[in-house]
């Protein structure tokens, strides 16, 4: 057995020791959910742990943005892992649909443009 191999065995042992508490926590959760089953099928890993860590981060972020803490927990609980990942990494770039006040201005602009378009259509014929 060469040295390289011994080293990789050692690494594997250390690694599985580090994962031990994790494995115990997982065993307590019971069935493999359909979400986990799909992740396993597609990526070869169930990857729920990272999602759980992100959940807390995103909830804290929501609280810092003015959401009630209890409410924030409920809100992130309903996100899919993919959505959670998007919020954890790209929250600032995500569109936040708003509406009414500025819309009045935009609508006014649209009306002007439409009027002008009408003029042009007649002009073109």
């Amino acid at each position: 057995m060469n040295q390289q191999r011994i080293r990789s065995y050692l690494m594997a042992c250390l690694f599985s020791l580090a994962l031990l508490p994790l494995a115990t926590a997982q065993a307590a959760t019971g069935l493999i959910s359909s979400q986990e089953a799909l992740a396993l099928e597609r990526t070869g890993s169930v990857e729920q742990v990272q999602a759980w860590l992100q959940r807390d981060d995103v909830a804290a972020e929501l609280v810092s943005m003015g959401v009630d803490p209890a409410r924030a927990q409920q809100r992130v609980a309903a996100l899919s892992p993919e959505e959670l990942d998007a919020m954890a990494h790209r929250l600032d770039e995500m569109p936040a649909g708003a509406g009414v006040i500025e819309i009045l201005g935009v609508t006014f602009l649209v009306l002007i443009v439409l009027d002008l378009i009408g003029v042009l259509n007649i002009f073109g014929r």
């Binding site: 009630d68 996100l79 995500m94 569109p95 708003a98």
Partner: peptide, 23 residues
């Protein structure tokens, strides 16, 4: 409103609309 509105952003995120539908 309490479920999807994000006060500091002054609006609502797409993913939160999806999540609220699930809820």
């Amino acid at each position: 409103v309490e479920q999807v509105y994000l006060p500091d952003r002054g609006g609502t995120l797409q993913v939160e609309l999806l999540a609220a539908a699930r809820s």
